[in-house]
Protein backbone atom coordinates (compact mmCIF):
# COMPACT_ATOMS: atom_id res chain seq x y z
CA UNK A 1 0.00 0.00 0.00
CA UNK A 2 1.35 3.37 -0.92
CA UNK A 3 -0.03 6.72 0.09
CA UNK A 4 0.31 9.80 -2.06
CA UNK A 5 0.40 12.43 0.63
CA UNK A 6 0.16 15.35 -1.78
CA UNK A 7 -3.06 13.85 -3.06
CA UNK A 8 -4.56 13.28 0.32
CA UNK A 9 -3.51 16.60 1.74
CA UNK A 10 -4.88 18.56 -1.17
CA UNK A 11 -8.01 16.74 -2.03
CA UNK A 12 -9.17 14.75 0.92
CA UNK A 13 -12.80 15.19 1.81
CA UNK A 14 -15.02 12.78 3.65
CA UNK A 15 -17.15 12.04 0.63
CA UNK A 16 -14.11 11.34 -1.51
CA UNK A 17 -12.47 9.24 1.13
CA UNK A 18 -15.51 7.10 1.69
CA UNK A 19 -15.07 5.75 -1.80
CA UNK A 20 -11.49 4.70 -1.17
CA UNK A 21 -10.31 1.66 0.67
CA UNK A 22 -10.45 2.14 4.40
CA UNK A 23 -6.73 1.98 4.88
CA UNK A 24 -6.28 4.67 2.28
CA UNK A 25 -9.01 6.73 3.83
CA UNK A 26 -7.47 6.24 7.24
CA UNK A 27 -4.23 7.75 6.08
CA UNK A 28 -5.84 10.53 4.14
CA UNK A 29 -8.04 11.74 6.91
CA UNK A 30 -5.33 11.30 9.48
CA UNK A 31 -3.03 13.44 7.40
CA UNK A 32 -5.66 16.08 6.84
CA UNK A 33 -6.54 16.31 10.49
CA UNK A 34 -2.99 16.22 11.72
CA UNK A 35 -1.81 18.72 9.14
CA UNK A 36 -3.97 21.36 10.75
CA UNK A 37 -1.40 21.44 13.54
CA UNK A 38 2.00 23.00 13.26
CA UNK A 39 4.57 20.33 12.49
CA UNK A 40 7.29 21.67 14.75
CA UNK A 41 5.82 20.82 18.14
CA UNK A 42 6.81 17.80 20.22
CA UNK A 43 5.14 14.47 19.66
CA UNK A 44 4.32 12.21 22.58
CA UNK A 45 3.40 8.56 21.99
CA UNK A 46 1.35 6.86 24.67
CA UNK A 47 2.05 3.15 25.03
CA UNK A 48 0.21 0.27 26.67
CA UNK A 49 1.10 -1.06 30.09
CA UNK A 50 2.44 -4.36 28.76
CA UNK A 51 6.09 -5.17 29.39
CA UNK A 52 6.74 -5.82 25.71
CA UNK A 53 4.94 -4.22 22.75
CA UNK A 54 2.78 -6.48 20.63
CA UNK A 55 3.67 -6.78 16.91
CA UNK A 56 0.94 -4.26 16.12
CA UNK A 57 2.26 -1.78 18.67
CA UNK A 58 5.81 -2.34 17.43
CA UNK A 59 4.73 -1.55 13.87
CA UNK A 60 3.05 1.64 15.09
CA UNK A 61 6.13 2.71 17.04
CA UNK A 62 8.33 2.10 14.01
CA UNK A 63 6.30 4.59 12.02
CA UNK A 64 6.39 7.19 14.77
CA UNK A 65 10.16 6.79 15.14
CA UNK A 66 10.62 7.10 11.39
CA UNK A 67 8.81 10.42 11.52
CA UNK A 68 10.33 11.93 14.64
CA UNK A 69 13.53 10.05 15.36
CA UNK A 70 14.99 10.56 18.79
CA UNK A 71 12.82 13.63 19.34
CA UNK A 72 9.92 11.29 19.89
CA UNK A 73 8.77 11.00 23.50
CA UNK A 74 7.26 7.80 24.84
CA UNK A 75 5.02 7.57 27.87
CA UNK A 76 3.48 4.46 29.32
CA UNK A 77 -0.09 4.63 30.62
CA UNK A 78 -1.87 2.23 32.92
CA UNK A 79 -4.94 2.03 35.14
CA UNK A 80 -3.40 3.80 38.12
CA UNK A 81 -5.57 6.85 38.90
CA UNK A 82 -2.49 9.02 39.47
CA UNK A 83 -1.22 8.16 35.97
CA UNK A 84 -4.51 9.13 34.34
CA UNK A 85 -4.76 12.32 36.40
CA UNK A 86 -1.21 13.27 35.44
CA UNK A 87 -2.04 12.65 31.79
CA UNK A 88 -5.10 14.86 32.07
CA UNK A 89 -2.91 17.66 33.43
CA UNK A 90 -0.57 17.21 30.45
CA UNK A 91 -3.48 17.37 28.05
CA UNK A 92 -4.67 20.59 29.68
CA UNK A 93 -1.31 22.28 29.14
CA UNK A 94 -0.96 25.48 27.13
CA UNK A 95 2.23 24.09 25.60
CA UNK A 96 1.59 22.87 22.07
CA UNK A 97 2.07 19.14 21.71
CA UNK A 98 0.68 16.26 19.67
CA UNK A 99 -0.24 13.13 21.62
CA UNK A 100 -0.69 9.99 19.55
CA UNK A 101 -0.99 6.32 20.37
CA UNK A 102 -2.27 2.84 19.70
CA UNK A 103 -3.82 1.56 22.91
CA UNK A 104 -6.04 -1.26 24.05
CA UNK A 105 -9.70 -0.38 24.47
CA UNK A 106 -9.71 0.02 28.24
CA UNK A 107 -6.82 2.47 28.35
CA UNK A 108 -7.99 4.26 25.21
CA UNK A 109 -11.37 4.88 26.84
CA UNK A 110 -9.58 6.61 29.70
CA UNK A 111 -7.31 8.63 27.41
CA UNK A 112 -10.17 9.89 25.23
CA UNK A 113 -12.10 10.83 28.33
CA UNK A 114 -9.07 12.62 29.76
CA UNK A 115 -8.81 14.57 26.49
CA UNK A 116 -12.45 15.62 26.78
CA UNK A 117 -12.05 16.60 30.37
CA UNK A 118 -8.92 18.60 29.57
CA UNK A 119 -10.53 20.37 26.63
CA UNK A 120 -7.97 18.99 24.17
CA UNK A 121 -8.72 18.46 20.48
CA UNK A 122 -9.26 14.94 19.23
CA UNK A 123 -8.10 15.06 15.63
CA UNK A 124 -8.10 11.36 14.95
CA UNK A 125 -9.90 8.44 16.56
CA UNK A 126 -10.26 4.99 15.05
CA UNK A 127 -11.03 1.46 16.21
CA UNK A 128 -9.00 -1.43 14.78
CA UNK A 129 -9.78 -5.10 15.29
CA UNK A 130 -6.98 -7.35 14.03
CA UNK A 131 -7.65 -11.04 13.48
CA UNK A 132 -5.50 -13.55 11.58
CA UNK A 133 -7.79 -13.22 8.57
CA UNK A 134 -8.86 -9.61 8.48
CA UNK A 135 -8.47 -6.20 10.00
CA UNK A 136 -11.66 -4.31 10.77
CA UNK A 137 -11.51 -0.56 11.13
CA UNK A 138 -14.06 1.97 12.28
CA UNK A 139 -13.11 5.56 11.92
CA UNK A 140 -14.92 7.94 14.25
CA UNK A 141 -15.35 11.66 14.29
CA UNK A 142 -17.75 14.04 15.95
CA UNK A 143 -20.47 13.75 13.35
CA UNK A 144 -20.35 10.41 11.65
CA UNK A 145 -18.63 7.09 11.55
CA UNK A 146 -16.73 7.93 8.41
CA UNK A 147 -16.34 4.42 7.16
CA UNK A 148 -16.03 0.90 8.36
CA UNK A 149 -14.40 -1.80 6.30
CA UNK A 150 -11.60 -4.32 6.17
CA UNK A 151 -7.97 -4.49 5.08
CA UNK A 152 -5.40 -7.19 4.46
CA UNK A 153 -4.35 -8.88 7.68
CA UNK A 154 -1.04 -10.25 6.41
CA UNK A 155 0.85 -7.02 6.94
CA UNK A 156 1.04 -4.49 9.71
CA UNK A 157 2.54 -1.88 7.39
CA UNK A 158 -0.64 0.20 7.54
CA UNK A 159 0.04 0.74 11.24
CA UNK A 160 3.55 1.94 10.51
CA UNK A 161 2.26 4.35 7.94
CA UNK A 162 -0.61 5.50 10.16
CA UNK A 163 1.82 6.36 12.97
CA UNK A 164 4.08 8.13 10.49
CA UNK A 165 1.21 10.28 9.26
CA UNK A 166 -0.01 11.07 12.77
CA UNK A 167 3.48 11.92 14.00
CA UNK A 168 4.51 14.01 10.99
CA UNK A 169 1.65 14.74 8.61
CA UNK A 170 3.57 17.01 6.29
CA UNK A 171 6.58 14.77 5.74
CA UNK A 172 7.02 13.29 2.30
CA UNK A 173 6.14 9.61 2.08
CA UNK A 174 9.63 8.94 0.77
CA UNK A 175 10.84 9.67 4.29
CA UNK A 176 9.21 6.51 5.50
CA UNK A 177 11.44 3.49 4.97
CA UNK A 178 9.73 0.46 3.52
CA UNK A 179 9.62 -1.68 6.62
CA UNK A 180 8.84 -5.33 6.12
CA UNK A 181 6.20 -6.10 8.67
CA UNK A 182 4.76 -9.33 7.33
CA UNK A 183 4.90 -12.01 9.93
CA UNK A 184 4.35 -15.72 10.17
CA UNK A 185 2.79 -15.31 13.59
CA UNK A 186 -0.95 -14.94 13.83
CA UNK A 187 -1.46 -11.36 14.90
CA UNK A 188 -4.57 -10.42 16.78
CA UNK A 189 -5.83 -7.76 19.06
CA UNK A 190 -8.09 -4.80 19.42
CA UNK A 191 -6.69 -1.28 19.43
CA UNK A 192 -7.69 2.34 19.30
CA UNK A 193 -5.50 4.81 17.44
CA UNK A 194 -5.75 8.51 18.21
CA UNK A 195 -4.15 11.87 17.77
CA UNK A 196 -4.79 14.65 20.27
CA UNK A 197 -3.75 18.24 19.79
CA UNK A 198 -2.73 19.89 23.04
CA UNK A 199 -2.22 23.58 23.61
CA UNK A 200 -3.73 26.63 22.05
CA UNK A 201 -5.42 25.93 18.72
CA UNK A 202 -3.66 26.99 15.56
CA UNK A 203 -5.90 29.54 13.89
CA UNK A 204 -3.59 29.87 10.94
Amino acid sequence: MSIDRRFVLKSASLSTLAALTLARADMALAATRAASMNNTHPVLVLTNDSTEPSPAEAAFLQGAYAAQGHALQLQRVDYEPKVIRALERQLRSDETMQVIGLLHDGLATLVVDAARSAGARMQWLSLHQITPNAVHHRLLNADADVCSCDTDASSMYWLTELAHVLAAPTLNSAMLPKIESRTDKAISGSFVSFSIAVGRPNHG
Binding site: A115, R116, R121, M122, Q123, L140, A142, A144, D145
Partner: peptide
Protein backbone atom coordinates in the same frame (compact mmCIF):
# COMPACT_ATOMS: atom_id res chain seq x y z
CA UNK B 1 -13.10 29.18 25.32
CA UNK B 2 -16.23 27.75 26.93
CA UNK B 3 -18.21 27.34 23.72
CA UNK B 4 -17.01 24.41 21.62
CA UNK B 5 -18.31 23.92 18.10
CA UNK B 6 -15.34 22.55 16.13
CA UNK B 7 -15.38 18.89 15.17
CA UNK B 8 -12.09 18.08 16.90
CA UNK B 9 -13.30 19.73 20.12
CA UNK B 10 -16.51 17.73 20.07
CA UNK B 11 -15.03 14.38 19.05
CA UNK B 12 -14.09 13.34 22.62
CA UNK B 13 -17.72 13.86 23.66
CA UNK B 14 -18.84 11.36 21.05
CA UNK B 15 -16.92 8.17 21.89
CA UNK B 16 -20.08 6.27 22.55
CA UNK B 17 -20.06 2.56 23.26
CA UNK B 18 -23.55 1.79 22.01
CA UNK B 19 -24.79 -0.26 19.07
CA UNK B 20 -25.53 2.69 16.81
CA UNK B 21 -23.49 5.06 14.70
CA UNK B 22 -21.82 7.92 16.50
CA UNK B 23 -23.76 10.26 14.23
CA UNK B 24 -26.96 9.51 16.14
CA UNK B 25 -25.43 10.99 19.28
CA UNK B 26 -23.31 13.77 17.79
Amino acid sequence: ENVLVAADQLAPYNKIMMSVDNAEHA
